[in-house]
């Protein structure tokens, strides 16, 4: 299914869906920190696409934070440069 998804993204055949943008945000985040950072991902995505829904999301967000199930600050991995080198080389090899 993922191949279909990536083909659709390449051919820009997704009309108004926010999926590609969400994926791209997720990818950028992982490339910067090495691990996913839900808080940053969710807030940036909703600000960009669903600003109206932020109020209804608030209770859930607060709940998650209070239950320590979401960290405000992202976590870095030590080998982040190693990861960046690998990923950049991989991008060159990517046969689009």
């Amino acid at each position: 299914m993922y191949t279909l998804k990536s083909m659709a993204i390449q051919d820009k055949a997704y009309k108004d869906s926010t999926a590609p943008d969400f994926s791209q945000t997720f990818v950028d985040m992982v490339e910067n920190y090495g691990r996913s950072y839900e808080f940053g991902l969710a807030t940036r995505h909703y600000l960009k696409h669903f600003p109206l829904r932020l109020p209804s999301m608030a209770p859930m967000g607060l709940g998650m934070l209070s239950k320590k199930r979401m960290d405000i600050t992202p976590k870095h991995i030590e080998g982040i440069d190693q990861l960046k080198a690998i990923l950049s080389r991989a991008k060159e090899l990517e046969v689009v």
């Binding site: 998804k5 990536s6 590609p20 994926s23 791209q24 997720f26 990818v27 991989a90 991008k91 990517e94």
Partner: peptide, 8 residues
């Protein structure tokens, strides 16, 4: 997400 964007 990642596999949806790229393969290698």
């Amino acid at each position: 997400e990642y596999l949806g964007i790229s393969t290698v």
